[in-house]
């Protein structure tokens, strides 16, 4: 997902007997679906894990602006241009809400940005792939926003209040993005032979990276179990991936496009699709910096941040002067 592999810092799941009274009271609240709010006591590992998860999500929104922003100036009609610009703008807004949610846990946006810029923080592997044609923009809306929704819809019910509320706002917009992407893809699939080919090519290139978005299988992972116990993760990666495949394959068929997986087959017994194995070697390479665009994405982000520093400084200096003048006047 946008947070594909989040470590919790625990090595086993505590039983209630092992917990301190505070920890037990906290877990009871989580079990009863009572939202945890910023001022309440929470285990340090919960707080840290949430910061990691929310900031990975926020960074993904921000880095994700690049592959799509790549086509804003080249969108094919005024309407498509407006839709794409508004979409990328929404992603900036998502980043902003999420950084705000993370700030309630005692870390600043600047600290988080420094972590991203230094390469220390992770973001979703998907945004390290290039957008080569216009159809990639349609495919991202359809597949990438579609995959994001799969995991973000359940997170609306997550245990941490500010994160859960950010998810409610974000999910509304993400499903809008998904529909717009599918609509753009429909235009291509029903268009000229060249457009149809462009659509198929985009599906070929984005299908597997989209499945990687859910992260490797975590059914056995202690981190995943802990996160689920804390209700900051609701489903396993494999459950979500399966759900995504089951939802998306019929959509591709409806468009007359072929999903690039020879092992894909409806399994009537399970009532689900069987599908091939993701290339996890590629995933680990991309997540550790060797994807086609990792360096480019990070460099672009750092450049914007560094080149914007004097502007942010000026805004601060001006606000301080203005404040001082207002004070002097009042005195």
């Amino acid at each position: 997902m946008y947070a594909q592999m989040v470590k919790t810092g625990v090595d086993h799941i505590q039983s209630k007997e092992e917990m301190s009274p505070e920890e037990r009271a906290f877990q009871d609240r989580v079990d009863q679906d009572i939202k945890i709010e910023p001022k309440e006591w929470m285990p340090e590992a919960y707080r840290k894990t949430l910061i990691r998860q929310i900031s990975q999500h926020a960074h993904s929104e921000i880095i994700g602006m690049q592959p799509e922003g790549n086509w804003i100036t080249r969108a094919p009609t005024l309407e498509r241009k407006a839709i794409l610009l508004a979409k990328v703008q929404d992603e900036a807004g998502h980043g902003l809400y999420l950084y705000c949610a993370a700030e309630t846990l005692g870390v600043t946006r600047d600290e988080l940005m420094e972590q991203l810029n230094s390469g220390k923080a992770k973001y979703s592997s998907i945004f390290n792939y290039p957008t080569l044609t216009w159809a990639d923009i349609a495919a991202i809306g359809w597949l990438v926003d579609g995959a994001a929704i799969m995991n973000q819809v359940p997170l609306q019910r997550c245990s941490y209040g500010p994160y859960s509320r950010a998810m409610v706002r974000i999910c509304k917009e993400e499903s809008f993005h998904q529909r717009q992407g599918y609509d753009a893809m429909t235009k291509l699939a029903r268009g000229t032979p060249e457009q149809k080919q462009m659509a198929q090519d985009a599906l070929n290139r984005w299908w597997w990276p989209s499945l990687m978005m859910f992260g490797p299988s975590d059914a056995e992972s202690v981190h995943s179990a802990q996160s689920m116990r804390w209700k900051i993760k609701i489903n396993t990666n494999d459950e979500l991936r399966q759900k995504f495949v089951d939802q998306t394959v019929p959509q591709a068929e409806y468009l007359g496009l072929t999903v690039p997986d020879p092992d894909l087959k409806w399994n009537a017994g399970r009532g689900q699709y069987d599908f091939g194995e993701v290339n996890w070697e590629e995933f680990y390479q991309v997540i550790s910096g060797n994807g086609p665009c990792n360096r480019q994405r990070l460099r672009t982000r750092v450049k914007a941040y560094e080149e914007g520093r004097w502007v942010r400084d000026a805004a601060d200096a001006y606000a301080a002067k203005k404040g001082a003048r207002a004070k002097a006047q009042a005195a």
């Binding site: 804003i72 508004a86 900036a92 914007a304 520093r309 502007v311």
Partner: peptide
């Protein structure tokens, strides 16, 4: 052209 490259997220929003 600024979208994604501006000095702060707030400016990405406002310029857009």
């Amino acid at each position: 052209e600024w979208c994604g490259h501006s000095p702060a997220l707030e400016e990405d929003l406002a310029l857009s």
